[in-house]
Computed example of a mutant assay.
Amino acid sequence: MKTIRIKHPHAKIDFPEMVIALGFFDGVHKGHKEVILTAKKEAMKRQLKCGVMTFFPHPKEVLRKEKKVNYLTSLNKKEELMFQLEIDYLIIIEFNEDFSDLNPQQFVDRYLIDFNIKHVVAGFDYSYGRLGKGTMETLPFHSRNKLTYTIVGKVEENGEKISSTSIRKALSVGNLDKVTNFLGRYYETDGVVVEGEQRGRQIGFPTANIASTNQTFIPDNGVYIVKIQINNQWLPAVCNVGYKPTFHDKNKMDLTIEVHILNYSKDIYGQKVKIQWIQKMRNEVKFESVNDLVNQLKKDVFNAKYFFQTSE
């Protein structure tokens, strides 16, 4: 797979004739995969290359001037998942104000026809061009019938549309079973190990304090069964997301992500890590005493160990 990063306005780029899947693809969930795999089938049928065209940053950050959008997949993770789907080209367009000003006709001319695209695949609700006024139904008009297209319908699970929005909602309440089901894999976030308060070590449960990176969406506050990747090795762990209410006033604390790695004692300060979110065990609560907290942490570790022993 070749990854091509493009900033508008771009210089001429020579692409082979290609079928392209269009979308933002945040999460690369089952619905997104259906679009991409449909593009692959169309490319094989036509004996053409297959590509995916996506955009970064999220249009909301540019058009609504929102300071931050929390993504389901970092750009690196998105690229990794596209590679696993075995496409030929990943085209990443830098979404900026100039690009957002392109009308539908200009987008089709400069980013589809000029890129040697012959067939377009997108979801039923995909739109393009300024204010999203271009749709798949208008594509023949804007391409002067130079392009054909395939629309992929809703992909549903138990009557609910699989979407990035529904996955965010599930993460916001800690429903990891639904998240895993909609993604077709465990949810992952990136981070780096930073120095914390050392409080976990003092009570017999040392933790790695993780500073989240890449603007990834963090699940709801609570205690989770997770895996953490250190030096390309996945290790079983328990993770607490929240404000440590037993020790702090929530209103005076920043959100913390603390991971207790099972049967592990190495120094990993400064290391880049990934967290794989598997199952929520309980909500974060304020305990009456440190003793009560320690007793609960023992139960959490026992439950996590039992989970890993019986599921692998």
Rank of each mutant, 00 (worst) to 15 (best):
K2S: 13
I4H: 01
R5T: 13
H8D: 09
K12V: 11
I13F: 04
I13Y: 05
F15V: 10
M18Q: 14
A21C: 05
G23Q: 05
D26F: 02
D26Y: 01
V28R: 01
H32D: 03
I36A: 11
L37C: 10
A39T: 11
A39P: 08
P59H: 00
V62W: 15
L63Q: 12
E66D: 12
T73D: 10
S74T: 13
S74V: 14
N76Y: 05
N76M: 07
E80F: 03
F83K: 15
Q84L: 15
E86V: 10
E86R: 10
D88W: 06
Y89K: 04
I92W: 11
I93C: 05
E97L: 02
F99K: 13
S100F: 06
L102H: 07
N103E: 08
Q106E: 12
F107A: 02
Y111G: 06
I117A: 15
H119Q: 02
H119P: 02
Y126D: 02
S127Q: 11
Y128R: 11
R130N: 12
L131D: 14
L131G: 01
K133N: 13
M136C: 08
L139I: 12
S143H: 01
R144W: 06
N145F: 12
T148N: 14
Y149S: 13
I151M: 05
G153Y: 10
K154T: 09
E156R: 12
E156S: 14
E156D: 12
E160T: 02
E160S: 05
K161Q: 14
S164W: 02
S166N: 14
A170N: 00
A170L: 00
G174Q: 11
L176E: 11
V179G: 07
V179F: 04
T180Q: 07
T180P: 00
Y186M: 06
Y186V: 04
E195T: 03
G196Q: 09
G196L: 03
G200I: 00
A208F: 14
I210Y: 09
I210G: 14
T216E: 15
F217D: 04
D220H: 15
N221W: 00
G222F: 11
I225G: 03
V226S: 11
I228F: 08
Q229S: 14
N231E: 09
N232E: 15
W234H: 07
L235S: 04
P236F: 08
P236I: 06
A237Q: 09
A237R: 10
C239Q: 07
N240F: 00
N240T: 09
P245C: 10
T246F: 00
F247L: 13
K250C: 02
T256L: 02
I261F: 02
S265Q: 13
S265Y: 04
K266D: 07
I268Q: 00
I268Y: 00
Q276A: 08
Q276I: 03
Q279P: 08
R282L: 03
N283P: 00
V285D: 13
K286Q: 13
K286M: 13
S289Q: 08
S289W: 01
L297H: 04
L297Q: 07
K298F: 03
F302N: 07
A304Y: 01
A304H: 01
K305A: 11
Y306E: 15
E312W: 15
E312V: 14
